[in-house]
Design a protein around this nucleic acid. Sequence first.
RNA 1: CGGGGCGUAGCUCAGUCUGGCAGAGCGCUGCGUUUGGGACGCAGAGGCCCGCGGUUCGAAUCCGCGCGCCCCGACCA
Length: 598
Amino acid sequence: MRMSRMFGHTLREAPTEADSPGHALLLRGGYIDQLMAGVYSFMPLGHRVKRKIEQVIREEMDAAGAQEVTLPAIQPAELWDQTGRRAAMGAVLFQLTDRRDRALALGPTHEEVITRLFADHAVSYRDLPVTLYQIQTKFRDEARPRGGLIRVREFTMKDAYSFDADDAGLDVSYGAMFEAYRRIFARCGVPTVPVQADSGAIGGKGSQEFIFLTSIGEDTIILCDTCTYAANQEKAEFVRPAAVQAAPGAPQATTDIETPGVTSIEALAAFLGIEARQTAKAVFFMATRAATGETFPVFAVVRGDLDVNEVKLANALGDVELRPMLDAEVAQHGIVAGYASPVGLRADVRVVADLSLVDAPNLVAGSNRVGWHTRHVNYGRDWQAAVVADITSAQAGHGCARCAAEGRAGTLRAERGIEMGHVFRLDTTYTSKMDVTLQDAGGGQLTPTMGCYGIGVGRILAAAVEAHCDDAGIAWPAAIAPYDVHLIGLGLDRDAEAAADAEALYAELRAAGLEVLFDDRDERPGVKFNDADLLGMPVRLTVSSRNTKADVVEVKARLATEAESIARGGVVTHVRTQREQGIAACSVEAVEARARGR
RNA sequence: CGGGGCGUAGCUCAGUCUGGCAGAGCGCUGCGUUUGGGACGCAGAGGCCCGCGGUUCGAAUCCGCGCGCCCCGACCA
């Protein structure tokens, strides 16, 4: 491509909308353009990167035995009613009506469509196993798009769906996708860590996310410093710090103490001169059961040094949506905010206790009257919970549960990260809701078990830039760079010989199968060098009068500090070798080694 | 959905408080000089000052109502 003909210009200053270094570089380089909140165009350079990422994905999916399809983006809304997800998705689902007033939706994901397609065309166990995938535009009306290409409302996603006869089959399909994902992220130069994750609204029995660890991430990831345990904070298990045990003898009798104006755990601990873990903390929610629409109050109790984890709490209650209780509802249920107590609660309030409370004696809890707390509150003796479960979040410094189970001491740390891909064991969640059965080998019927596997193409692009850039610009991983080589011609309008040399080299490189961005513009050298650094092709070549006279070409890898002169005759081979080395550098081992080490 | 900020040239931003010719730098066009890390001179082009309504002799500027974008939070497959 001749730069003199390429659509789009580089910017010296980044538009103010840029909110990360990588996003700024993509905007400055003319890779992407924002049309509205969370909706982007990919300009020629950005489009090329996107296509290359898709190609990597396609190759790995095909190699894993998956078959590519294209599913409709526009779908009947009633399909979403069959699984109850039209309601579950809520406002995130883009909905519209056609001219006959039929309710439609723009696909945010395709479990329903693929399950229908599968049901229509698979008839017996002999059709299993099968994995189908597509690379498609998804639509999600996110409440708040952010982070450049990270959280957007229209985006390209690769989604794959596996169908198997049984759990053992699902394990094989899931494993194949998991390994393909590791290769995809590595080849694209994006370091990721697989972490245990909550399945969320998509349902199913367990899932793992591939996380790119970065300070601009929107998820909190918990990692062990000793073993390989890693999990999303929504899901992470941990060893609770020990409770302060009672002095020898039985739990003491409760006594009320006056605590004027003391409504937070910190204030309470300071006021009484005790630790936060010697207190009980209460948080109240309204829960709505998704299946029935039934609404009920929830009173969550955790030890004072821990925080309620809403995802875990919702899971402990089973298939509910939670929202914080309004002030009026708090009063209506006889709860005194700031001094709430699990002791003597009304029967219609569902009490859920964290595991940390069961063996923590003599805690200080609220008295359920303004200005008073109660000492020596004990679970079992003074109050009971409908559910006792893990409903608190792991935090940095907590113990690693896996290490503890295996007799080691591991300490957890917390980092920010972005979800690049997510693999789910859906089990028969969708096939049973949509009533899909196949004939089995024995003349009976079987309900296939599913897996689903997603990757955000735009997120890979954005993360690749965040992971590979410097102050001057982008440094693309070899496999996804828009062009393999950036060929700069200096002073070509003044030197016909150098101009002919540059043209010849441009042709030779292309004839050798390399993709070349040729800066043939009438610009000063500084402009060209700076644009080359900004745009970030892996290799830069410079042809100029003095190089042509010496029968050499200057070569510089994007991140190298110095250029080197090599004989004109060896340029094509040299570039090809550099490209191969660049691709080899993105091995699974090399990229994953980088992933945790940030 | 709650809180905050911002909408003026392709980009970055002055001008708004205190109403009175639509501005600067970069970028863009032409000519000339220059030419190895974002040159210089001369001459130009480019604006629904987010929109609508109001106040006023007069509104980018003041008032009201919208819309859009960004940030923090809530939410997030």
